[in-house]
Each structure stands twice: as C-alpha cells, then as structure tokens.
C-alpha cells in the first residue's frame, strides 16, 4: 500500500522551509510520496504582492522537480473556490488508502473549527509539524491527543518575508530553490 502525505498551503512562493520540513516528514513517517496541494485564493482576497495561481503552481513544480518523492496536485486550484480540507481528502481517498494529513502547529490550535474534524481523523492520520520554537499550549481540545506531533527542523523563513525582500530588490538566494528564484525574477513577481 502506498503511503502518502498531503501538504496544503498557499505556497506563494514555496520556500526551502517547506521543502526541508517535507523531506524530514517523508523520512520520519516513512512515506512513499508527499503531495503538495496549493490552495485556491479568491482574487478579491489576495494579499498585496501576491501572485496568481498559475505562478504559484509553476514555482512549486520547479522547486520539487528533482525530488522524485515530491509531487503536486491541482485539485484545489481547479475548484476555483475556497476548498475545505475534508473535500480534498475525500477526493484523494479514491486513489490512496493511506494518507498522512500534514498540518502546521497553528492549524492544530484551530482544528476544532475545521469542517468535519472527526471525519478527517477517520480518513487520515493527522500529522502536526511542531517547530522547536512552538511553545506547548495551555488549553487543549480533544484533537491534541489524537494527532501525531512531529518535531520538524525549524527554518526561520516565511513566504511573506520572501515577497517583501523581492519587493525591496533584496536577494532571495538560498531561501527558495535556484529555479524558483529565476522564475520569480524573470516574471517580475511580488514587486
């Protein structure tokens, strides 16, 4: 049985922090593949200096092309509306029996607000990336006990920071892959 992990996010752009965390989870969870799933963002809700879904996807493809255990899915982009994770999981369950749903520690905090959280636990293993800087939280809902919390390497980097650097014409070497950097600069993104 193929063991896959699904890793959703805005990925605007995907950076080495995402890639390092994904590689780490691939090894720790003994996964065959991690599928990156860029989410759809309504055009009127896009943040300042954000890029189009096509650009986000292209940067993602370029960033993972040499790691054969990394893949991507356009499932949420194709919906052309904001997706609920449960809908994406149900769709992927048609193809895969074993799914690790990879989420950040902040998402665990709000997990009880997600759509059908119990069903997400029925269909997947919820795997939480906890960084060394993430403090133990004070008030815990029932899903804390059910989730698998994995300590992942912490790279102090965010897509927001990268976009901000690009807008100020500062270098982003080593923050994104070389091909991603070329793409961002060649297409005048985030200016």
């Amino acid at each position: 049985m193929e063991r896959i992990g699904i890793f959703g996010g805005t990925f605007d752009p995907i950076h080495i922090g995402h890639l390092i965390a994904a590689q780490s989870l691939l090894e720790i969870r003994k996964l065959d593949k991690i599928i990156f799933i860029p989410c759809y963002i309504s055009p009127h809700k896009r943040q300042a200096r954000s890029s189009s879904p096509e650009h986000r996807l292209e940067i993602l493809k370029l960033s993972i092309q040499y790691q054969k255990q990394f893949a991507f899915s356009e499932i949420e982009l194709h919906r052309q509306e904001v997706s609920f994770t449960i809908d994406t999981v149900r769709e992927l369950k048609k193809q895969y029996d074993y799914i690790d749903l990879i989420i950040g520690y902040d998402n665990l905090i709000v997990f009880d607000s997600w759509k059908e959280p119990d069903e997400l636990f029925n269909l997947t293993n919820v795997v939480v990336m906890k960084r060394t800087i993430d403090k133990e939280i004070e008030y815990k809902h029932k899903y804390y006990e059910q989730a698998t919390i994995i300590q992942t390497p912490y790279v102090e980097l965010s897509s927001t920071y990268i976009r901000s650097r690009v807008s100020q014409h500062l270098p982003i070497d080593f923050m994104v892959t070389h091909l991603a950097k070329e793409y961002i600069l060649n297409h005048n993104l985030y200016l």
Binding site: Y105, D106, I109, D134, K135, I137, E138, Y139, H141
Partner: peptide
C-alpha cells in the same frame, strides 16, 4: 483557542 494562537 485565541489565547493559544497568541502564544505562537
């Protein structure tokens, strides 16, 4: 939940 998020 909000207090937890503020701890990030």
């Amino acid at each position: 939940q909000i207090m937890n998020l503020l701890q990030l």
